[in-house]
């Protein structure tokens, strides 16, 4: 036990100054005590690591450089968007795909959707032959659906978390049919195949997991 004769308080501590006035404490009873609060342990959250900083620096400078070069070589072809898109997709892949702690269905969903937009942009900026929407998008969506379905089948524990993303990707898979109606998609079989798969999965969910869907919708849409 120690005593501060300036503040007139007693304190149990191994420190030798008063926490209120910082004056030396008087020892009334010499004893070793356990501090009430733990000592400082240094920064508990690490600062952004150096690799990340370097990559960030390179990305930002190259984006600026690409834009400047594109500007001086004429703006009628925006070729710089392709490497810039690749850089951005690299960051999405790193942050969402690898380092985030979200569940795998969420990662697959985000990566697939962003990849489709990126591929579509490449197609439009190059020769715009329409291969992105005709072939790549339906096949990507299809593989995403199959992947998530398999994960749900294998890992049954957390299927409630995954089912929302499966549902979302199924909804996205119906979009190519709409694009067929507007003549954007000219090759029919990939989109039609995807549509059949999506409807099949949707009916499967509706017949076998009706309550999960209802609960998920109620949860996510309450206002």
């Amino acid at each position: 036990m120690k005593y501060c004769n300036k503040c007139h308080i007693s304190i149990k501590t191994n420190h030798n100054y008063c926490p209120l006035c910082h004056q030396t404490l008087e020892v009334t009873k010499d004893e070793e005590v356990v501090e009430k609060y733990p000592p400082y342990q240094g920064k508990l959250r690490p600062v952004k690591d150096i690799t990340r900083k370097i990559l960030m620096f390179i990305s930002v400078t190259s984006i600026i450089l690409l834009l400047v070069i594109n500007f001086f070589t004429g703006l009628d072809i925006l070729w710089s968007l392709i490497p810039i898109g690749s850089i951005l997709y690299f960051w999405i892949l790193m942050t969402v795909g690898i380092f985030s702690k979200h569940n795998i269905a969420f990662k697959l969903f985000i990566l697939t959707i962003t990849l489709i937009f990126f591929i579509y942009m490449i197609d439009e900026l190059s020769s715009s032959e329409g291969w992105a929407l005709n072939y790549v998008a339906p096949l990507l969506l299809g593989s995403c659906i199959i992947a998530i379905s398999f994960i749900i089948l294998i890992k049954r524990i957390n299927y409630r978390d995954y089912i929302t993303y499966l549902l979302l990707i199924v909804l996205f898979s119906i979009a190519p049919i709409v694009l067929i109606l507007f003549d954007v998609i000219t090759v029919l079989w990939p989109s039609l195949g995807l549509f059949v798969l999506a409807v099949f999965i949707l009916l499967f969910i509706i017949f076998f997991f009706p309550k999960s869907i209802k609960d998920e919708i109620k949860k996510r849409f309450h206002a």
């Binding site: 007139h8 308080i9 007693s10 304190i11 008063c18 926490p19 209120l20 910082h22």
Partner: peptide
């Protein structure tokens, strides 16, 4: 504020025992 607060209470004749995490140490 803490110092004056507790000093006010001791001046009213109260006994006070202080506990602190000694943040000024680090």
């Amino acid at each position: 504020i803490e110092r004056e607060f507790f000093r006010h209470l001791t001046s009213q004749g109260l006994d006070i025992e202080i506990e602190s995490n000694y943040v000024e140490e680090y």
